[in-house]
Simulated assay, not measured.
Amino acid sequence: MENQSVSLKKVILLAGALAAYWIGSGFSTGQEVLQFFTTSGTKGIAAALIFLVLMSYLSYTLYGIGQKKKFENPYDVFEYYCGKALGQVYTWYNVILIYAIFVVMLAGAGATIHQYYGIQTYIGTGVIAILALGTTLLGVEKLIDIIGVIGPVKIVFVAIVGVAGIITLSGQPTLLSEASNLMPTLGFKSASSNWAWSGALYAFLALMVSIPFQVDCGKSAGSVKEARSAALLGTFAFTIAIILLVIAELVYYKLIVGKQVPTLEIANHISPVLGLFFSVLIVVSIYSAVASFLLMTVRKFAPDKTKKFNIIATVLTIIGMFFGGVLPFDKLVNILYPFAGYSAIVFTCFMIFKELKGSGGKQDN
């Protein structure tokens, strides 16, 4: 009989870690939500619900299997679901994808800090890189502890912006329909012309970059029930953050036209103090995502807190800092991202097939 004890503190921590992992620079600036959801107007809220349904099942399954199988290497989950040959293809694709995004975020970190605080770009990049490396060297458990606390804080700040939007909306109830009608004419980039597909695509992209991380989080739980509860709570909290941000971006659509950082514009409009906190939040979001993506890359090559792990993490950080502004990694991600969505759909099919066969439900003792 498997242990089914549940610690509420651990559930919140693991749920927060998942939310923090997903709330990186793209989400915290508001650009991801804008392109995948808000550009669809009020249908963006329905798209968020599609994300919720898909991601709840996928995270529930991955957290559960992470706890049941306790893979020594989280990338072993690809072979578990897809077999040896295809599993290896997925493993290396995932490593490349995660490291490419790590380098892009590291390169963008310096520019972001320079834009907000006027600090030299290379200093900003270096500070984020050193903080991320230091956190990574502490190991996966400590990383989960740290970003598990950061996740709920991020959601609270997004909630403040969303609630402000709802309050404004209560006085001007026609704002949502007005913004929905105008969205296609405002020049915003959109992830897809179909609102339902945008919600599904966001779920598959979120899946593809977080599979090893979710497996590690599941392994960290005290029981299968605890792991699955954390997965559902984390996905639900993240979806609430999406919906609140969609509402805020629709309500304040005039403020964010042509702006690279919609959340900062909205926060500054609500209160300069909130704007200052949001600028800090964006930097913290970049740091937590960079640390998480670095750790997940290195976990392919060595167990955490080993000498080999520390050396590889340090080398990859130096490479990321050096080449971040030189190599066209943004183009690499533009190539990897669309493929990531479709490859995640195929992986999901393998997951569902294995789970339905029943072999996913057996536990190794």
Rank of each mutant, 00 (worst) to 15 (best):
Q4T: 12
S5E: 14
V6Y: 06
L13N: 11
G16D: 02
A17Y: 06
A17F: 06
G30L: 02
L34P: 10
T39Q: 10
K43Y: 03
K43V: 07
K43I: 09
F51E: 04
M55Q: 05
S56M: 05
L58H: 13
L58M: 15
Y60K: 08
Q67K: 15
K70R: 15
Y75F: 13
Y75I: 13
D76K: 14
V77C: 09
A85S: 15
G87H: 07
T91Q: 13
W92M: 04
N94K: 12
N94D: 13
F102N: 15
V103K: 13
V104R: 13
A107R: 12
G108D: 02
G110M: 07
G110I: 11
T112Q: 09
Y117H: 02
L133M: 03
L137S: 06
L137E: 00
V140C: 07
K142D: 07
I147E: 04
G148V: 00
V149P: 08
I150W: 11
G151A: 03
V153H: 07
K154T: 00
I155R: 01
V161A: 01
G162Y: 09
A164F: 02
I166H: 10
L175V: 03
S177N: 09
E178P: 07
M183K: 01
G187V: 02
G187D: 04
F188P: 10
S192W: 06
N194K: 10
W195C: 00
W197K: 11
Y202H: 14
L205H: 14
L205M: 15
A206C: 15
L207T: 01
Q214F: 11
C217I: 10
S220C: 11
L233W: 06
L233E: 05
L233V: 12
G234A: 04
T235L: 00
T235V: 15
T239N: 13
I240N: 05
A241W: 02
A248V: 06
Y252H: 05
Q260H: 09
T263P: 10
E265C: 13
I266D: 00
A267K: 01
A267W: 03
N268H: 08
N268Y: 07
L274P: 08
L274T: 04
V284K: 11
A289K: 13
T297K: 14
K307E: 11
F309P: 01
I319M: 10
G320M: 02
M321N: 07
F322E: 12
F322M: 15
V326A: 12
D330W: 10
L332S: 08
V333F: 08
N334T: 06
Y337P: 04
F339L: 06
S343G: 04
A344C: 04
I345V: 14
I345C: 10
C349N: 09
F353K: 15
L356Y: 15
G358H: 02
G358C: 07
K362L: 10
N365T: 12
